[in-house]
């Protein structure tokens, strides 16, 4: 019985499961439509909450039509709706009507990481003094590994999604967007700092450095790879950014398996 009911909830043909009755002989299909509407609108609303800039980029009508198709093709597998939308970016990538906005899928990826960061486990960021103490001992620092806040994510993109996202946070988004080259490659750094999720745009060297450290490379190896990939890599600036973002939770100075 539930199988018919469930299938009809996501159907687009307006069909109604069998075996429904009404006290006054009114049409069951019309009343069943209340459930279908509740389900689809509720899930589309959940996506709209999680992907506000993606919505702003295409407008509400386009977004809701696209979200409806996603909801019907990929209903949630978990009742924890806060994390619904994993897969929305991939869906957008293959959604022909959105092909004119090549950065839209990565914007959805960035916004999903933002939701993940928002709800990620709590952890205590390292105080800047703890790093200052290490910087004096080059040999120890060279071999050190970093541990990071559970909310830290990197998103490398062929498009300027971090700048685009940032521009959309200001009241005068249209003004800021005017000079933006969306085709410029960027890496976004996402991290929750206290109760706020922040998004930064990293230069190629900084992105390489953080990515290496997140994969448990040593400080020296990460810095070397960063410099090799980007001669403008600024180690001090990148460390300062990680500290300011509350991204570093520990520095392990003795070599050991993670």
């Amino acid at each position: 019985m539930s199988a018919d009911f469930a299938a009809a909830l996501l159907a687009t043909d307006g069909c109604c499961p069998p075996g429904l009755t009404t006290w006054n002989g009114s049409a069951p299909a019309q009343r069943f439509g209340v459930y279908r509407n509740n389900v689809v609108v509720g899930l589309v609303d959940a996506l709209a909450d999680s992907f506000p800039v993606t919505q702003a980029l295409v407008g509400e009508d386009f977004f809701r039509a696209m979200a409806r198709e996603f909801v019907r093709a990929h209903p949630p597998r978990s009742s924890v709706l806060a994390l619904y939308g994993d897969g929305f970016a991939g869906f957008i990538e293959d959604f022909p009507p959105a092909a004119g906005l090549p950065y839209l899928a990565d914007m959805a990826r960035l916004e999903y990481l933002r939701v993940m960061a928002w709800h990620a486990a709590d952890a205590c960021p390292l105080a800047p003094a703890a790093i200052a103490a290490l910087v004096g001992d080059a040999a120890v620092l060279a071999d050190a590994r970093f541990s990071f806040h559970p909310s830290l994510f990197l998103l490398p993109s062929a498009h300027a999604v971090a700048s685009l996202w940032t521009a959309h946070q200001s009241e005068s988004a249209a003004l800021t967007l005017a000079g933006l080259d969306t085709a410029a490659a960027e890496t976004a750094l996402v991290c929750r700092n206290g109760l706020e999720v922040e998004i930064f745009c990293l230069r190629p060297g900084a992105a390489s450095f953080v990515a290496s450290l997140m994969q448990d490379a040593s400080f020296a190896a990460a810095a070397e790879a960063a410099l090799a990939s980007d001669s403008h890599f600024d180690l001090a600036e990148t460390l300062a950014l990680l500290l300011r973002a509350g991204a570093i939770t520990g520095i392990i100075t003795q070599r050991r398996k993670s």
Binding site: S2, A3, F5, A6, Y35, N38, G42, A46, P75, S79
Partner: peptide
Amino acid sequence: SSHGGNFYNDLL
């Protein structure tokens, strides 16, 4: 609210 592994987010 769930059937066949899907969550429908409504009280059915």
